[in-house]
Design a protein around this nucleic acid. Structure first.
Lengths: 111, 111
DNA sequence: CGATATTGTTACTTGCCACTTACGTTAGCA
DNA sequence: TGCTAACGTAAGTGGCAAGTAACAATATCG
């Protein structure tokens, strides 16, 4: 998640999304030095967002679809949970109201 | 996107995901001071991820589902494009192979 | 084996961000 | 009209992260 916070890393990820690219070619697309791109690639690799393959002295990078899918799932779950919980909570509250007619204060709802 | 990079902000967002909470109650869940939480809330508000509502001296915060949906859409698009492009590329390569039967070396796929 | 090319790694500097302390603001109440 | 409570805001500090320069590692070619 933190790996995607950096705009440059998102650009890199978009570059290697379709085709496998060597580190030098990736660095050629930006106005920063190769070491900077190399570090970005390491962050992306550790985050599971890109795959590295060695070919001679070069290293080819490509986006890892599973990593993207994982992030997508995270947001989907956050969103769906929001709807589900809202519904479940409304129902539970309704049951509480039905069960305790004269009680004025809600006992749970803690933190 | 950068707003979600901070773990504490993700926690805050999860807290106000279901129920509306005043700033003090939110700060009570963490070991940091209220001003820190206040700043986090401002970032989340500017990112369109939470809504603020004033009630007397208090300010109530709640997650904004549209903000989450937008982020989810971003990842979905990134993922879907990845699949589409991968398929299109595979088909294009297949056509290339079909078109040049006696050529020993692949013209593209440069390395 | 020596020379070159491609890349990663380390040490360092710079800039941003999270946090705290102190102060300002607004609403409710005696 | 004061007094308090619940916030936000401003200024300052510490730490992490991005970038650069110099160095190290590995493979290819003569």
């Amino acid at each position: 998640m933190k790996a995607l916070a950096e705009p440059r890393r998102r650009e890199i990820l978009r570059l290697v999304r379709d085709e496998e690219l060597p580190a030098g070619a990736i660095a050629g697309h930006f106005a920063v030095t190769r070491p900077a791109i190399s570090q970005h690639l390491r962050v992306l690799k550790e985050a599971g967002l890109v795959d590295e393959r060695r070919d001679g002295t070069r290293r080819l990078y490509r986006a890892r679809p599973e990593g993207l899918a994982e992030l997508r799932l995270y947001f989907e779950q956050l969103w769906d949970d929001s709807l589900e919980r809202l519904k479940a909570e409304a129902e539970a509250e309704q049951r509480t109201i039905d069960a305790l007619p004269p009680k004025p204060g809600q006992p749970h709802k803690e933190h």
